[in-house]
Design a protein around this nucleic acid. Structure first.
Length: 306
DNA sequence: TAGGCCATCTGGTCCT
DNA sequence: AGGACCAGATGGCCTA
């Protein structure tokens, strides 16, 4: 199973990771080049005058009924040089009205497009670590975290073993803002004890999901979720010093079956940090443990939990 | 109050 | 011609 998965998935992930690493390395250079190219294109393609296609569209549609009124807007400019490009027409009331309708339709389409984009982004939020309905990652942070997450998964597949939590957190948080770093690190640090000590129920040292996106690699099954000591209200604070809202999913849902995070229909449960031992939760409020975590992880735990 | 994030509008460009 | 995509501008909301 493991070897089959590796043989099937590893090449793709490796290629993806390599591409991303390359992109990351060259990001600045590329951006500069693109900007430069864009400027060059603009310089080359820029019409002599600002008669764009949109303007010409605006000016030249609805031929039939306005044919009689057609005349050049600037033909009598006298000593001024003649402008190139399509000749403008007078904006009659009908034309203005049609233009407004067209603009409204374009606005509606643009709204729909952005809603679709946001919907896709929301689906992406659900498959990266630390999904929360109540405190959403920003768009840019979601994209960054998703990229890091894929890179981390690729790294795990490449090495064939589970890295330590510090490395994992560092991989995930690379390039993220401080608040998001706190959030992610906080989520994952809470799971440190499970991570370090509790193997998967099947005995494997490192549980490989059937799909790279079907489970977070550090979200292990937890048999103690049903413990009477489990207190969902206690524990983690977010970066704003508030208790984590319901829905943070840094942990693997109990029950043995993993949710299909990749499904757009998947809706993360609202329970918070389900998979933590009571001791783990209590440890969060224990300054000594926090200091220990700080030493272990290298993260500023004060920032993480305050 | 400044800064971050977001939704929306808008005009430009490209594609079918 | 019309739609998709993009980026800039703008204003609202929220938080530190």
């Amino acid at each position: 199973m493991l070897s089959r998965l590796f043989s099937e998935v590893l090449p793709d992930v490796q290629r993806l990771a390599a591409d991303w690493a390359e992109d990351t390395e060259n990001e600045d250079c590329k951006n500069k080049d693109e900007d430069h190219d864009h400027l060059d294109e603009d310089d080359l393609d820029e019409p002599l005058e600002g008669s764009s296609r949109a303007e010409s569209e605006m000016a030249c549609d609805d031929d039939e009924d306005d044919e009689a009124e057609e005349e050049e807007c600037d033909e009598n400019s006298g000593d001024k040089p003649k402008k190139r490009g399509p000749k403008k027409r007078k904006m009659t009331a009908a034309r203005v009205e049609r233009s407004k309708v067209r603009r409204m339709k374009a606005n509606a389409r643009e709204r729909t497009r952005m809603h679709d984009l946001n919907s896709a982004l929301e689906n992406l939020r659900k498959v990266v670590p630390c999904y929360s309905k109540t405190q959403k990652l920003s768009k840019i942070e979601t994209l960054r975290l998703a990229k890091n997450y894929i890179m981390a998964l690729g790294e795990i597949l490449r090495n064939g073993k589970r890295p330590d939590v510090v490395t994992y957190v560092q991989m995930l948080c690379k390039g993220l803002s401080q608040p998001t770093t706190n959030l992610v690190a906080g989520c994952l640090q809470l799971n440190t004890r499970n991570f370090l000590t509790e193997p998967c129920s099947d005995g494997a040292r490192f549980h490989v999901p059937s799909s790279p996106f079907s489970v977070h690699p550090y979200s292990y099954r937890c048999s103690r979720i049903s413990s009477p000591h489990y207190q969902p209200g206690s524990g983690a604070l977010n970066v704003r010093g508030q208790s984590y809202g319901s829905g943070y999913e840094a942990a693997y849902p109990p029950g043995g079956t993993s949710p299909d995070y990749s499904s757009p229909d998947y809706e993360a449960p609202k329970s918070r940090l389900k998979c933590y031992h009571r001791e783990s939760l209590a440890a969060v409020s224990d300054n000594k443990i926090i200091q220990k975590n700080k030493m272990e992880t290298g993260f500023n735990v004060k920032n993480v939990f305050s």
